[in-house]
Amino acid sequence: MNNTEKPTPRTLGNVSWHDRAACRFTVHDQADPDLFFPEPDEMDRIRVAKALCDRCPVRTTCLDSALENGDQDGIRGGMTEEERHSVHRKFQLRLDYGRVNAVLAGSDIHLTAAERRAAARAAYQAGTSAEELARMLKVTKEHAQKLYRRTRRQLRDRAIDQQKKANTGEQTPQGRTAALKKPSVHAPSRDDLGEAA
């Protein structure tokens, strides 16, 4: 039985979750730290380590931490180095709106590239200044302005594409025929973005 729950995104540098890890070394529970660094052919050790991970209440947080920090060694979050390899490559594509909303609410959380773009889109919609976005994302004001320029460009391109589809009567992604009336051409406003989550 897996006791893990989807954790609240941890703040940057927060390792307090270590205290709840099933693999922690305590006087009463003396898990061998070397167990989590087996050789690839040590299948018995790998099974024992993964069994311990399966009952860990912070397994997801452990895996997130390994991915965020680029940890390549050992078993982390119930996955071997080899199993995490493909996850590492796809990690920057992760888009968790819970994490995005936590950053927008003021939490100091590691975001992937996709999550940063979503945060910029939501902040733009809310009328957040570039200075405030820079503070939330821990980037320079210039980088925040760049994120806003990219957001405006994407919204403009989306509005143009929608207008073209409406003018030609193309099917929309939802399978409906686009309206035949010609929409007004305007740069998308912040209100056109919708909610982040």
Rank of each mutant, 00 (worst) to 15 (best):
S107Q: 15
E142N: 13
A113V: 13
H110R: 10
M79R: 06
R76G: 00
A122W: 02
E131W: 09
A120W: 04
A113H: 10
A120V: 07
L63R: 07
Y124Q: 05
G98I: 04
Y97E: 13
L104T: 05
D54F: 09
K50I: 02
F91K: 06
R116S: 11
R59W: 01
T80L: 00
E115L: 07
L137W: 09
T128M: 15
R117A: 14
R84D: 03
A118N: 00
A126M: 13
P57G: 04
A102P: 07
G106A: 03
K138N: 15
K90Q: 15
R59A: 08
R121A: 14
S129M: 06
K90A: 15
F91R: 12
A114V: 08
L93S: 14
V87N: 04
K50H: 03
M79K: 06
T80P: 00
R94E: 08
L52R: 02
Q92F: 09
S107W: 08
Q125T: 14
L95K: 07
D54W: 03
D71S: 12
H143G: 02
A120N: 06
E115M: 08
T128S: 10
K141T: 14
R121N: 09
V87M: 11
L67I: 07
N69S: 15
V103G: 09
Q125Y: 02
E115A: 10
G74D: 05
L137S: 07
C62W: 02
V139G: 04
A113L: 12
Y97R: 15
T61G: 13
Q72D: 13
R84L: 04
L133E: 02
T112C: 09
K141P: 05
L104V: 08
H143P: 00
H85I: 04
D73Q: 14
K141N: 12
D54T: 12
D96C: 09
Q72N: 10
L63M: 08
A134Q: 06
F91I: 02
S65R: 12
Q72F: 08
R55G: 15
V100Y: 03
M136F: 12
E81K: 04
F91E: 11
G106I: 05
C62T: 07
H88T: 08
V103W: 05
L93A: 14
K50N: 00
A66R: 02
K50S: 03
R117F: 11
R135W: 10
L63H: 03
A123Y: 04
L52G: 01
A134W: 01
C62S: 09
H110I: 12
L133M: 09
D64Y: 11
H85Y: 14
V58S: 05
E132I: 11
